[in-house]
Nucleic acid binder design. Structure first.
Lengths: 169, 169
DNA sequence: AGATATTACGTGACAAGTCATATAATATCT
DNA sequence: AGATATTATATGACTTGTCACGTAATATCT
């Protein structure tokens, strides 16, 4: 706690250096930078949005899927896909049909225009991934992903559980 | 590339497992989970939003700052703070005054109601950070932060530079 | 067979980020 | 002293996430 009444550049710099080690503080900027960079790469590869790219890539690699399947692979809420897909259908990128066996489900499939858009963006995005592998070794990525797994497990613990453990101590 | 015409659960599972090792794919969900969990913690600690909490914490630790200072510490665009602060002033959390020496700058200072809101949220958020230290050792956090630093450096490289390096090869 | 529970998707509402642009104030240059 | 360049903030517009809720279809139970 400070009783400082005037702006103090040294304190500002110290605060920033300290927050560099706060994982919670680091994520917003890194995530935003990743998204912005991804969007810029896609601008060079045909102009797809991040969600469009991700979805076409998934459909291209896996084949037809439900909205729930896409949400599961992308670790996102189904509403994100539910909202994006009608526009993608309008652009001719995908087809959407109700599943004959289960009327609740929608089967999404890549369409020729989507395949073309995928073909245009894929080399650019592959270059991005290759460039990252010049910065991190395969072993380092494995360790990094291990940290992310553990961090995500922590983030998904119920808040009440985390707060209750303190009371038990 | 697949020519699959039917939904295939094994392919879906394989795709998801593979994307687990794609750092770009991992970030959106982890960032969103961090934010949602942070909001839930704050609900237990007085109801501040994430941006409000971060800002009050910074002002409490450092003292008066400009909007640019806050944006620098939080590694965020100045517009995020510029937008949040008038509401925080309206709630009595902060005061805002033009700098006498430089009329372009706004000096933001924590106010009594902000200090009270900070005091209520701080123990809850401290518990969150303490709980994370039970999951990661200090050494592991240092390595993790090193990876994040390198990743962020990569993410901030101009796209043209990354794409040009391929051409040079 | 009918009632109840569960699941899949669509939509409302919102938070939190960014980039771009405009305005005002200051710094620098000639 | 005046012109030009730079900087700080405010605002427009947008993207991408989530949670909550409603509707429709299916699964399960009695």
């Amino acid at each position: 706690m400070t009783t400082a009444t005037e702006r103090d550049e040294a304190r500002i710099a110290a605060r920033q250096a300290r927050e560099d080690y706060n994982l919670f503080s680091r994520l917003p900027a890194i995530y935003a930078a990743s998204r912005m960079q991804g969007q810029q790469f896609l601008q060079h590869g045909g102009g797809l949005s991040i969600v469009e790219w991700r979805t076409l890539w998934d459909l291209h690699e896996v084949g037809p899927m439900t909205i729930r399947d896409l949400a599961t692979i992308q670790r996102a809420d189904h509403s994100l896909l539910s909202r994006a897909l009608p526009d993608m259908r309008r652009k001719g990128y995908v087809t959407m049909r109700r599943d004959e066996g289960d009327g609740r489900q929608t089967i999404v499939e890549i369409a020729p225009a989507g395949r073309a858009a995928y073909d245009r963006a894929a080399p650019v995005m592959a270059r991005r991934r290759a460039a990252l592998r010049e910065v991190f070794s395969e072993e380092e990525i494995a360790v990094f992903v291990g940290f992310l797994d553990r961090f995500e497990d922590f983030l998904r613990r119920p808040v009440e559980q985390v707060l209750k453990e303190e009371t038990a101590k």
